[in-house]
Structure formats: structure tokens, C-alpha cells
Design a protein around this nucleic acid. Structure first.
Length: 590
RNA sequence: CGGGGUGUAGCUUAGCCUGGUAGAGCGCUACGUUCGGGACGUAGAGGUCGUCAGUUCGAAUCUGACCACCCCGACCA
């Protein structure tokens, strides 16, 4: 039991100007966190308590799923990362922590980095410690601080430079076992988020820099989310937009027959899809080929999508490049023979085709018959372009961004789109890391085999904010029972009355005995201030003890989620508090 | 990193255009009156006006550079 007057809950009437979204404002107003600097936050006592509750729930679910907790350093010698498979891609998000305290200038290459995640640390450990199939499977996890040089920290804890994350790493003897580990984690995640009071959906996701064969993300639907989820209510299909596909292109599509010969025509100054769609040309965007040039690991390549479609850059990961970015006009022109706006991939028009690492086309491009594309000559386009006859395509694939309303790939119903916050991510990694670090074991046939890995993250601090984003009203936070910093708030309207203070102690003891954490507001404040603060910090159960009620022989009980106040006779008070706490605990952990 | 914006008391901000002793509300301190949904009065404390340089008799105000923060885009738990 804590007394408010002796605790530290600095609530604010107004929110600081740099808080944009409601959960960020409430984090500050309810006295949960304070900003040190961009993306760096101090957890005040109340915020820390919630964070610890979430941490504990996570630990319980991980342990129940058979994962084993350990603790790894957060300062990593850079050589571990240099030896890993993603040094080039990961170093730009890593903070350097160089040993420059001797007054020398920092070396060009980092000596130490602050860990953004721990595959490069756990895999060498497992390599040396686990050598037999008898010791597998294993799943190690830790809950600790991660450091990422976020390009743009924002929204409070939502995207921070330093944040709390649970990361787990599984090691299995074969694919089948690895999938079992993966599914066990996925199920544990669902239980964890449910116990946090978070409504999440799990979606198919892109594996990104992490690499690996497949993955799911746990998403909290929210208008302020950085991610976009594509889903179908009919079939249950749900995917991150980076990964989502639609049933737009039929599997049995037959390419249209060419209707005429290729023909070049002048299009002075026309460098956009829209300009070519407008008079006098009037070429529908859907009949244009949009040819985009990218630089992948130092090599130029082309991607073609329909004029009206958008390239989904994340899908370029399927091409096998480690890093890629849009090419610059200076890189494009010598190879293609024209500037962006007049590019195309028709055979024979590319100035230096050998300099291209490939021409990749989105499947939907095949829907175009007799289309228009750039002639690789500034100010000219080609018409009557047909995919099979005229374009030199290295490979077709799914590269376009899905749009709302397109058919679900499973059910054919219209797809819906909404924004969401990613709070958890499970990856089946495969052998990307075990291969690089030589994490092998000896099987029953005395054969040396690579371990199959998975990795599993939960944004603990982000989840904290996601709870607030999902659970609040106009007056403040509405904490779910399990993650509330305290579950019961006893408001003493007249703290100087000895009988009120005594009753408060009794009820606090009763609530604690039933398994709740109790905060007692004993401040010498006016009732209005106390009620406003009570709503703002949002503890689930409020018990009000006031002189007026004591004269009537009652106290009041009110749930933060409800409007009604229940008057409870003093004689029943302890028992009612006990049963309310017991009921709430049970409801929160089904 | 690109584009836009903002820096004045712990918080929210006015003043800046048109240079001349830095203002308010909240919060804080003291006293009094209040006391069931952010009370009222009186008296106070609290400011390198982001930093540095320049223009000027004089700069919060004009100019330049830098820094920090916020918003929009690419990254991610």
C-alpha cells in the first residue's frame, strides 16, 4: 500500500506541447514518464510499476511456453556483428559506443555497439555450449533494454531510441521442430497480449533485415499506428501491407495477343503517369508500364509495375539484395539512355542492358495488352507494347502495393485496410545465423547439422503505450486490471478524520489480501482535484471514503470503466472489496 | 537524410510584423475564506527570451550561423 502524499505522481492539467497523440499525452499527464531527450524517457514510479507488470506477465507466458530466461550484455564488441550476416544493413541503426575515453579520436570502424537485438550474441553462445541433438530444442529469452538509432523517434515510447524489449531465440533440430517452436511462441504471444488487456490481431509479415523464411506480427489496431494492415473479414486473411497480396491477377491469366506493331511517338515534356493519361495522349494509367530503377548492393536493376499501381519497396527483398534504394538520375541515364520519365524495358531500347542486374515485373503488368512505356529516349514513348513479345523480363513477382477493395487472395471478398501498432513479431529464421556462426549439432546418426532458428520480439515499453492508446477515455487512462500500476485507489476525501483514515487502512488491507495493489489518496486536496486525478491515472477500482458517506454509514465503490457508483454499507465494505478484487482478477486472467 | 514548423518561468503561452524597463493563466510559497468533480482573495518567489555572432545609442523583437525540439516521408519492437 502506498500513500499518495508520500509517493510521487506528478499529474498535469495541460499536456506538454510536444505530445501529439492521446497515449503520449496521457503518459505525461498521468505522471507515468518524463522526457529526457528525443526518444529517451524516464519512467516515473507509476509508469515503472505498469512496465514491471507487463514484464512479469511476459515472463510468465514465456516460462509457461518453455522458454528459458537469461541475460546478455547490451554493449557488444563490433566484431560479433561484423562476423554476422547483416552488418552492412544493421550498422546504420546501431549506436556506436567507442572506447574513446583516452582522448584519441573515435576510430573509423566502431569498436563497440549498443545492441539493437541479440542474434549475433546468442548464436555464438549456443554454438559453443550446445553440440548435441539431446540438448535441443532450446529457447532463450531476456527482457531488457534495446538501443536503436531511430531515424525519427516519435510518439513517446512508441518509437524510442532506447526501449524495453523481450527477445527470444529458439534452436531446433529440424524444420518441423522449428515450426513447433514458432507456433508455441505465437500462442504464448496471443495469451500475453490478452492478459495485458490488449486486443491484437496477428498478421503475415515481411521479414525485413532480420531475414528468415516467414513471420507474423502482432498488431494493435490504432489510427496512430505506423504500420498498415490488410485484412479480410470473410476469410480471416490478414497481412502487413508490405507483405499483403490480392487476388487481382488470376493464376491462369493468358497474356493478351498483340494488336499492332511497336510504334514510337513524341511526348515532349511528359515525365509522369498523370501527364500521359491526360489529353492529348489519354493513355489510361492502367495501360502504362511504370519502369523504376533501383540500386541493389551497388548494381542497377529495373522494376516494372502498372502505371496506376505503387511499388511496395519491401517486396524487393524477394530479389536477394541486402540493401536497395531508388537509383539517382545520374546512375540511370548512362545505362538506360534516358532520364526518369522516359524509361522503359522494351528489348533493344536500353542503351547498356548488360549493366542491369535484372528487369523484374509485377504480375499485374501481364494484365496490360498493347500498353505504353518510355522509349529510353527523352521525350518519346512507345505504344502497342506487349509483355511477352516486347519486354525482356528477368522474372515476374508480386511487387505492387495492395489497395483497399481488391479481392482477398483467399475468399475473393474485398480487402480492408487499417493502421496498426506493431507490438510483437515472431520470425522463423531458418539457418541464416546458425550457418554464419557455425551453430551445428550432432544428430543421432553422428552427422553434423545446422540448427534451425527462430526469433521472437515483444516491444514491452511500446505495449505499455499501446494499452493506453487502446484503453482511455476523455478523462484519462482506463487501465486493464493486470497492467494497472495499482488496481485499487482509496480516496480519502477527509484524510484528517481519524475514522476515515482507519477505515481506509482496513479496506486497503482487505484489497491487498485479495491480491490487489492499493494506492491511498490521503492528500489534503479538495475533492474535485482528487476525482479528476483519479480519473486521469485511471486505476480500475475506486473506493471513496468521505465524511458525508460515513454519516450515512456507507462508502462508495466505482469501476473506472463504469459510470455508476455503488454505495456500500460499512458493515459489508471489507467483504465487498474482497469479492470485487477476486472477481476482477479472475476476469483478467481467463 | 529530405521537406515544413517552433524555441519566452516547472507547464500552456502573449509580446516579435512596426527595436526602447518581459506580461498572463496553470503550478509553487505564505495567510485567510472555502471544501463531494481541477475554489476564491491577498501577498510573494520564479526568466541567460535556445546558443553564438552581427546590425544598432539600444535587440525577445532585425540579420546570419549553429543547436534543440515538433510535424510529414524512408527504418523498426
Amino acid at each position: 500500500m502506498k500513500l499518495w502524499s508520500q509517493y510521487f505522481i506528478p499529474t498535469l492539467k495541460e499536456s506538454p506541447a510536444d505530445a501529439e497523440i492521446v497515449s503520449h499525452k496521457l503518459l505525461l499527464r498521468a505522471g507515468l514518464v518524463r522526457k529526457l531527450s528525443g526518444g529517451l524517457y524516464t519512467y516515473l514510479p507509476l509508469g515503472l510499476r505498469s512496465l514491471q507488470k507487463i514484464t512479469q506477465l511476459c515472463r510468465e507466458e514465456m516460462d509457461a511456453a518453455g522458454a528459458i530466461e537469461l541475460w546478455m550484455p547490451h554493449l557488444h564488441p563490433a566484431e560479433f556483428w561484423q562476423a554476422g550476416p547483416r552488418w552492412a544493413a544493421a550498422r546504420e541503426i546501431m549506436y556506436r559506443a567507442d572506447n574513446a575515453g583516452d582522448g584519441r579520436r573515435a576510430p573509423r570502424e566502431p569498436e563497440f555497439v549498443l545492441g539493437p537485438t541479440h542474434e549475433e550474441i546468442i548464436t555464438p553462445l549456443v554454438k559453443t555450449e550446445i553440440t548435441s541433438y539431446r540438448d535441443l530444442p532450446k529457447n532463450f529469452y531476456q527482457i531488457g533494454t534495446k538501443f536503436r538509432n531511430e531515424i525519427r523517434p516519435r510518439y513517446g515510447l512508441m518509437r524510442a531510441r532506447e526501449f524495453v524489449m523481450k527477445d527470444a531465440y529458439s534452436f531446433d533440430v529440424d524444420d518441423e521442430a522449428a515450426i513447433r517452436s514458432y507456433l508455441a511462441m505465437k500462442a504464448a504471444y496471443a495469451r500475453f497480449f490478452a492478459r495485458c488487456g490488449l486486443k491484437t490481431i496477428s498478421v503475415e509479415a515481411d521479414t525485413g533485415v532480420m531475414g528468415g523464411s516467414f513471420s507474423h506480427e502482432f498488431m494493435v489496431p490504432a489510427e496512430v499506428g505506423d504500420d498498415v494492415v490488410v485484412y479480410c473479414e470473410e476469410s480471416g486473411y490478414a497481412a502487413n501491407r508490405e507483405k499483403a497480396s490480392s487476388g487481382l491477377v488470376p493464376a491462369d491469366l493468358v497474356d493478351a495477343a498483340p494488336a499492332g506493331a511497336l510504334e514510337e511517338f513524341p511526348t515532349p515534356g511528359v515525365v509522369t503517369i498523370a501527364a500521359l493519361a491526360a489529353p492529348p495522349f489519354g493513355v489510361a494509367a492502367g495501360l502504362q508500364f511504370k519502369t523504376l530503377l533501383y540500386m541493389g548492393d551497388g548494381k542497377l536493376f529495373a522494376v516494372i509495375v502498372r502505371g496506376g499501381d505503387e511499388l511496395e519497396e519491401a517486396k524487393l527483398g524477394a530479389l536477394g539484395f541486402t540493401l536497395w534504394r531508388p537509383a539517382t538520375p545520374e546512375e540511370i541515364e548512362p545505362v538506360m539512355g534516358a532520364k526518369p520519365g522516359s524509361l522503359g524495358a522494351v528489348r533493344g531500347t536500353i542503351r547498356n542492358p548488360d549493366a542491369l542486374a535484372g528487369v523484374f515485373a509485377d504480375n499485374a503488368v501481364r494484365l496490360i495488352g498493347n500498353g505504353v512505356t518510355g522509349a529510353n529516349r527523352d521525350g518519346f514513348h512507345l505504344r502497342n507494347v506487349n509483355v511477352a513479345r516486347d519486354l525482356a523480363i528477368t522474372r515476374f513477382g508480386d511487387f505492387r502495393r495492395v489497395r483497399e477493395g481488391e479481392q482477398c487472395p483467399k475468399s475473393g471478398h474485398p480487402l480492408k485496410i487499417r493502421r496498426a501498432i506493431e507490438v510483437g513479431h515472431v520470425f522463423k529464421l531458418g539457418t541464416k545465423y546458425s550457418e554464419k556462426f557455425g551453430a551445428v549439432y550432432t544428430d543421432a546418426q553422428k552427422q553434423s547439422r545446422l540448427m534451425i532458428m527462430g526469433c521472437y520480439g515483444i516491444g514491452i515499453s511500446r505495449s505499455l503505450q499501446a494499452v493506453i492508446e487502446q484503453c482511455h477515455d476523455a478523462d484519462g487512462v482506463v487501465w486493464p486490471w493486470n497492467v494497472a500500476p495499482f488496481q485499487v485507489l482509496i480516496v480519502l476525501l477527509d484524510p484528517q478524520m481519524p475514522e476515515a483514515a482507519e477505515l481506509g487502512r482496513k479496506l486497503a488491507a482487505a484489497a491487498e489480501a485479495a491480491g490487489a495493489d492499493v494506492l491511498v489518496d490521503d492528500r489534503a486536496e479538495r475533492p474535485g482535484v482528487k476525482f479528476k486525478d483519479a480519473d486521469l491515472i485511471g486505476l480500475p477500482l475506486r473506493i471513496t471514503i468521505g465524511g458525508r458517506g460515513l454519516k450515512e454509514g456507507v462508502i462508495e465503490m466505482k469501476w473506472r470503466t463504469e459510470k455508476d457508483v455503488a454505495k456500500v454499507p460499512l458493515a459489508e465494505a471489507e467483504e465487498r472489496v474482497r469479492s470485487a478484487v477476486a472477481a476482477a482478477r479472475q476476469a483478467a486472467n481467463v
